[in-house]
């Protein structure tokens, strides 16, 4: 495992544990993500990678351990937690665009209601973001009128509108038709190039090779490997990782 200076980390998890009843889903997780770093988390389903991602903005609570964002420990509940979440962008597998709001409103709602940005300014910023992810002309539509790939790009714009310090992606392409995966990955690769700090849970190995600074491999609730993509894909150390990669390559 790569060792890092914890003080340097934008996101740090220290000895984090979580149980679902009997099931130990996160086992003593230690992970540091530096500013500007793109960390891809991969692993078989049920390995706890989504739970890990969701724990970072406390959509999942943890049993013990410490999670810090930019040096600040995650508050338990209430206003402080809401404030911290505004700094952490999240993109979900199922997009979760607000179904009763237009595309533009989906993006402006956070800045207006949470940050108190004036509507005109929020609209302008939102349009710029929507253009950037290639769905500017869809602004007045409702989410259900867009394709999955378009919805997911709007979801990325919605998260970016809050000007987050770090972006979490929880299997952002798993619910998409194959031909739509690339349009979402392209936006993410662009984002990575621009220096956004990203934690990405995904099954897209191509994205991991292309955009990741580090690959974290999880199995059975543990971080089994933490290496550069080059190292991980060409020379995995653990048998769990070797097994996982061999299954991917057979098809």
């Amino acid at each position: 495992m790569t060792t890092q200076v914890p003080g340097d980390a934008l996101v740090s998890l220290n000895a984090v544990n979580k149980h679902y009843g009997q099931l130990h889903v996160l086992k003593d997780i230690n992970l540091n993500v530096r500013k500007g770093e793109v960390v891809v988390v991969i692993g078989p389903s049920g390995s706890g990678k989504s739970t890990l991602c969701r724990a970072i903005n406390r959509l999942e609570t943890i049993d013990d351990g410490v999670i810090k964002i930019d040096g600040k420990e995650l508050p338990a509940e209430g206003k402080e937690l809401a404030k911290l979440r505004a700094d952490v962008g999240m993109v979900f597998q199922s997009f979760n665009l607000f179904a009763h709001k237009t595309i533009l409103e989906n993006v402006t709602l956070g800045p207006i209601k949470v940050k108190g940005v004036a509507k005109a300014e929020a609209d302008k910023d939102a349009m710029a973001l929507l253009e950037r992810v290639g769905v500017g002309h869809q602004a007045p539509k409702l989410p259900a009128q867009l394709s999955g790939g378009q919805q997911q790009r709007v979801a990325i714009a919605r998260a970016l509108a809050m000007k987050p310090k770090v972006m979490l992606f929880d299997e952002p392409t798993s619910a998409l038709d194959p031909e739509m995966i690339n349009e979402v990955l392209d936006v993410m690769i662009q984002l990575a190039k621009e220096g956004m700090t990203m934690i990405v849970v995904t099954h897209e190995m191509g994205f991991a090779r292309k955009a990741a600074d580090r690959v974290v491999f999880m199995a059975d609730g543990q971080i089994v490997e933490d290496a550069t993509p080059e190292e991980f894909f060409t020379n995995p150390k653990s048998s769990r990782a070797k097994d996982f990669l061999s299954k991917l390559l057979t098809h």
Binding site: A82, R85, F92, F98, A99, H100, G110, K113, R158
Partner: peptide
């Protein structure tokens, strides 16, 4: 997921309820 998305952009409980959940 609607509530999770609203919480993840920093909304307080009262905002999640009044802006996202109740209207739907």
């Amino acid at each position: 997921g609607q509530a999770e998305a609203a919480r993840s952009i920093g909304m307080k409980f009262s905002q999640v309820l009044s802006l996202i959940i109740l209207p739907q």
